[in-house]
Design a protein around this nucleic acid. Sequence first.
DNA 1: TTGTAGGCGTTATCAT
DNA 2: ATGATAACGCCTACAA
Lengths: 329, 329
Amino acid sequence: MEGARSVATIRDVARKSGVSVATVSRVLNEKGYVHEDTRKKVEKAIEILQYKPNNVARSLFKKTSKTIGFLIPDITNPFFPQLVRAVEDVMYPAGYTTILFNSDENLNHEIEYIEGMTSKYIDGFIIASNTLHWEHLHLLNVPVIALDRHIDSRISSVVIDNYTGAVEALEFMFSRGCKNIAHLEGPNYIYTAQERKKAYLNVMKEKNLPVLLQQGNYELEQAMIKTMHLLSEHPNIDGLFAGNDVMAIGALKAAHKLGIQVPKQLSIMGFDGIEWGETVTPELTTMQQPIYEMGRKAAELLLARIHEQDLEVEHHILPVNIKKRNSVK
Amino acid sequence: MEGARSVATIRDVARKSGVSVATVSRVLNEKGYVHEDTRKKVEKAIEILQYKPNNVARSLFKKTSKTIGFLIPDITNPFFPQLVRAVEDVMYPAGYTTILFNSDENLNHEIEYIEGMTSKYIDGFIIASNTLHWEHLHLLNVPVIALDRHIDSRISSVVIDNYTGAVEALEFMFSRGCKNIAHLEGPNYIYTAQERKKAYLNVMKEKNLPVLLQQGNYELEQAMIKTMHLLSEHPNIDGLFAGNDVMAIGALKAAHKLGIQVPKQLSIMGFDGIEWGETVTPELTTMQQPIYEMGRKAAELLLARIHEQDLEVEHHILPVNIKKRNSVK
DNA sequence: TTGTAGGCGTTATCAT
DNA sequence: ATGATAACGCCTACAA
């Protein structure tokens, strides 16, 4: 890259247009009185010098950076890209840039990140992660929105009702004739997984049916292996409620490998509604979350709280709806 | 959130430890001489006041922000999450935070973004987008790495050889007995799509075979529709070389709907090697790019150039390799 | 070894 | 309507 021409500052503009920096600042921010002629002169100087205000200096003074932090477990998990996209789609037009952080659910990394961002005058956080709690967040003097999981009653949140969603998913499976449903559960330290499992447990208990649990980790490969075990050991299973879509897809592959027909011999139900589910064979029946909508809502809440300091805490529970496709008979 | 306690500054630390700010700064940056006892005192004060250096002030002075910008078309495109992850995995441990930007290939947005970031003292860019050219970048006084596509010989890049990869993919299809191969092409304004198409055209020409082109846009839904048309109009097609995996998956769905058996009646070949390809039925045969590796390499190049100003331009072409699965016979 | 003071580029207050 | 000037929080000559 060529030799770095030094960038014009507000002082250069002032000099060139023969006014003070204060005046330049006024035309820049359209604040206070400034004579039409002066404005013209200043604007011309800005044009000539290709002047762009320095955002760092601005941040230092204003104690705001027009930037928000978005913490997610892992962008590689197909649930998150849409969420990220939605957040950005709201933030960018509002003049905010969003900084993503893949936490891998590592608490120390998360804390480190939050501290680093705080010292950059970040204006707020959206947190879709499972390790951070009230104690880590309450000292922040910027708004925080919990997304996808509820963190604390004092922190605004945008979630879905995982419990009820799971109950409905199970009811649907029963209504389609499943008699012997197993649950491929997600990691027990993840809130959504806990809720979905709880629903399974309660439904089975209520119906006085035997519980059949298999531990998964929300990932494909392992889900496939675990399902193979499960199905070999319990050939009478006729329904599998997976903790998320990714695992449901793993289960589908497992069934395929074992020569078990879905949904004829085995119904498989997912949870999430990621796009992936439409491309597998048979197409995945799942409990669909309004992913994009969730991201959008969280971003809007955050923005509102950035603009107006002490809005009340709000908890939003967005509706899920069952997506009937072909993996449940 | 509770009332905002004002944050401690370096001045507070100086006061509390009875030294000057210069000394505090010295212990902070481990620079210059400072007596062991003084250091102790200062460190204690820092501890007590929970002092964290203000990164904005630091940036203003140092003209660097320990931040890089990463421009991609759309995180929702399953090719990118891995790339993003790789970049972050290199950048974060090196003390840099990366800011993602979804450009949707909109030039104005991209320019706006780059300008905004420049005025934040961003330290470099990785660009995996198709609209930005030399003219937009050469004035930047920070390093830029082109990723996934070559921008200009004067800008370091990390790419794969799309042309040769496509040729090899086609050779493979022929070797498996395909006689009549069509190409589902990507958007013609995208570099990778152009290269892959060029390869198809040349191979067909060389073999004196008729060209069968269908325009796609690298997306699933449209690919499915286009493939339905293509296959209905040309029932003698026995091989389809898709411009990317996502479209290949769309094609797979189309074949499925039309009752055409893959790979028995129709071989489908993808390009990219995204994880998705493993979950469809039949599993997608594809030309695999070292996606993570590409991101890693780009990040490393950038880092090197940030640390050392005038390293030579480097162009890296990473190897692709065919992933034989079950969609090509 | 430590302190003083000027500057990084803006904004906002207070004069004029 | 405009201009000086003191912050914002940090760093680094230069002095001491």
